[in-house]
């Protein structure tokens, strides 16, 4: 079963390696992992979708919490949340079927971001299920290329998502790569 974890980390070189290394070593099966900056400088936010039973997920959470670079780990499973994935899909669409493809895209409120002679590129944002449905509907035409970002998730309602303790990034290995994770 899929569980959604939100992990706040220092925005520091090597943090993604540490998280990925931990997950590989402990044998947790990852569905997707996304990472990016947050409202606060020096703080990164990862959304990790783990495909595992509840006890395994608990283990993953406790192991993540032990990493020095991790400020907080939240498991969103038990509260309402918004989960969004973005897809870019290049669909085979010669002039004969193009209008049909475009119509279908509209049903999903997807955008057409590129049109070539024999294909179109469609961009769509939505829940994991919606993206799956869009992709399935395009399959009969022929999918030439497909890329997904993986899920970004956030709980619904009023709350203070950022960790209570301010991040205290240590300035090691700084340089132009310091912003990368």
């Amino acid at each position: 079963m899929a569980h959604v974890l939100v992990v706040y980390t220092d925005d520091e070189p090597g943090v993604l390696t540490r998280v990925a290394s931990l997950i590989r070593r402990r044998g947790f099966n990852i569905h997707s992992l996304t990472v990016g900056p947050t409202e606060r400088a020096g703080l990164s936010r990862m959304t990790i979708v783990v495909d595992a039973e509840a006890p395994t997920v608990r283990q993953a959470v406790e192991h993540l919490r032990k990493l020095v670079n991790v400020l907080a780990v939240e498991q969103l499973g038990d509260r309402p949340m918004v989960v969004r994935d973005l897809v870019l899909v290049r669909v085979a669409a010669n002039p004969e079927v193009r209008s049909e493809v475009l119509q279908l895209a509209q049903v999903f409120r997807a955008n057409v971001v590129d049109i070539a002679e024999d294909s179109v590129v469609i961009e769509c944002t939505g829940s994991l299920a919606k993206i799956d449905a869009l992709v399935d509907s395009m399959r009969p035409f022929g999918i030439l290329e497909l890329g997904r970002t993986g899920a970004v998730a956030m709980a619904r309602g009023t709350r203070t998502p950022a960790p209570s303790r301010a991040p205290v990034p240590l300035r090691t290995g700084t340089g132009p790569e310091a912003m990368s994770v």
Partner: peptide, 19 residues
Amino acid sequence: IPVTKHNYLVTRAEDIVPA
């Protein structure tokens, strides 16, 4: 990484003491 609690790569003298 897997055999330490944490590790550091320090490239500047001023980062040595904090690390």
